[in-house]
């Protein structure tokens, strides 16, 4: 199977633009990244479908020239989900403006805390030293 270079390159450009936008701080720009990237990924399915063909409708065209329907079904699912997700993300951006006056994705506080632990060579909160003394003082039931 010989894939179409044009499609593959277009998909690559869309994905690249998506990556650039995804690494932004503004949630709206991240959303743009999601949109353009998912378009790019959907194009990859076209490459996987093989050469351009006729619509996969039985009886309308010759079966041999039919395009592969399976990736199409997957892409159809992906398109609609992207729409739902992007509606959710834009609402998050709105909510962020409503609460903070901007839509910047801030750094995770928990991660900063873990970094502080690592700098002190400390253990995590969930760590518990397992000691049982031989004298039995530690080990009493009830």
């Amino acid at each position: 199977m010989t894939p179409s270079l044009t499609l593959a390159v277009t998909a690559g450009v869309l994905v690249a633009a998506g990556v650039y936008l995804l690494t932004e701080r503004s949630l709206t720009r991240i959303l743009m990244g999601v949109l353009v990237m998912s378009n790019g990924v959907n194009l990859l399915f076209l490459v996987a479908m093989g050469p351009a063909g006729n619509p996969a409708i039985i009886g309308a065209f010759d079966g041999a020239t039919m395009s592969d329907p399976l990736p199409q079904a997957m892409v159809l699912t992906a398109i609609v989900i992207t729409m739902a997700v992007s509606a959710f993300v834009i609402t998050m951006a709105y909510r962020s403006f409503q609460l903070n006056g901007n839509d910047e994705v801030s750094d995770d506080i928990e991660d900063a805390r873990i970094r502080a632990l690592a700098e002190r060579d400390d253990v995590s909160d969930s760590y518990e030293d397992a000691t049982f003394s031989d004298t039995g003082e530690d080990v009493v039931s009830e």
Partner: peptide, 21 residues
Amino acid sequence: RLLLAASVGGSVTASILVAAS
């Protein structure tokens, strides 16, 4: 970020071409 974007895009294009062919 631009460099990363270009390399990811390039990898995607190259890998799909190789995979499909």
